[in-house]
Amino acid sequence: MPYMKAIIAIGEGQVKIADDIPMPILGDYEALCKVHACGFCNGTDLQIIDGTLVNGFGGFPTVLGHEGAGEIVALGKRVRHIHIGDRYIHPNLHPNVGNGYSKTHGSMAQYGIINDDRSMLEDGFNAENLPFPRQHKFPSSIDYIDAGVLLSLAECHSAVVNFGVKPEMDILIYGAGPMGIALAMFCGFAGAHVTQIDGVSERLAYAKKVAKVEHTINFNEESVDSILNGICFDMVIDAVGLTTIIYEASNRLKPGGKVGSLGVLKKDDRLVNTALLKNNTSIHMLNFPYGEYAIMDKTIRLITDGTIQPEDFYSHIMPYTEIDKAIGLVRGKKVLKIILTFDD
């Protein structure tokens, strides 16, 4: 049996490069994707490593990654709508990877699987039974490195739609990581006025540059209460993932306002005490994206027409063999986002 290399989490806080991952065996409707790059998700991937993710966790040892980008190099015998050389994001692996490994979600491997959903539907399969419904083709005008942030951008784009951001809304965003900045950018595209809070001055300056954020607050250097001085917002979004932020966000809302929960809550911080929320407010939970693939083509068009520059949303490109260094940089908030490359 041929093997490939992959980044796996083997236990809480432990990651290694494994070289005994069985190469995917293609089903009739599956195509083999050679992974060239994969974004490291500061939220989900780190939570998987730390053992704090609940939804979708396959169990240790598990192959990481959901932001992979690669090209099709082989086809199953019933594949009709995928072609050699096509580029796709989110190559996946079968749940039972083999050799005792699971996958969550398996894009940080040298090869992955793309499913020909269209052919399966044409041949009478139920849409609910498609094995990998969260995948998408991207054009050759977008390189593999840039495609490593394509999913994150589409997730933030869809979040703005799902949260119901409207022109002239006053919005406060907690968190100026790659997702927070992308979220602020799409809020701006929707015509909203954005204030952003973070504890890293460089990230706040970057939010002003890239997302054209109107106001920023550094909670490590300024009193948020003093700066806002009673100002309330139509919507406050937690892009960090803490219930304490949800409570604080609620108390910064106008009557009838909405708290958007976008950051992924950890498994020991998932209960929201509604008694701590301001009266006449709503909470919209979006810890896991919804509709990001439905809006993917529109997100891609914003890139291809030059409205969005993908390189604005990552700061480092590193080989997958330096995963330990990459994780250290993420933990220390020394990077915006890292794209890992898989070309030996």
Rank of each mutant, 00 (worst) to 15 (best):
M4K: 11
A31Y: 12
K34H: 12
F40D: 04
D45Q: 12
Q47N: 11
I49Q: 14
T52E: 13
F57Q: 07
G65R: 06
A69H: 03
E71C: 08
I72D: 01
V73D: 07
A74H: 13
G76N: 10
R80M: 09
H83W: 11
I89N: 01
I89G: 02
P91H: 07
P91N: 11
V97K: 04
N99P: 03
Y101K: 05
Y101D: 03
S102I: 10
M108V: 04
Q110F: 05
G112H: 10
N115M: 08
D117A: 14
D117F: 13
H136P: 01
D143V: 14
I145V: 15
D146K: 07
L150S: 12
L151H: 09
N162R: 15
V165Q: 04
M169F: 08
I171N: 01
I173P: 00
Y174H: 03
A176C: 03
P178T: 14
G191Q: 07
H193W: 10
V194E: 02
I197Q: 00
S201Y: 09
A207P: 01
T216G: 00
I217K: 00
I217D: 00
I217E: 00
I217V: 14
N220A: 11
N220C: 07
I227A: 06
F233Q: 00
V236D: 02
I237M: 01
G241P: 09
T243Y: 08
T244Q: 13
I245L: 14
E248I: 03
L253Y: 06
K254C: 11
K254T: 13
V264H: 09
K267Q: 13
K267S: 15
L271R: 14
V272D: 07
N280E: 14
T281P: 06
T281V: 13
S282D: 11
I283D: 01
L286I: 09
M296G: 13
D297T: 14
I303P: 01
T307S: 15
D312T: 06
I323A: 01
L329G: 04
V330K: 02
G332I: 04
G332W: 08
K333L: 10
T341Q: 08
D343E: 15
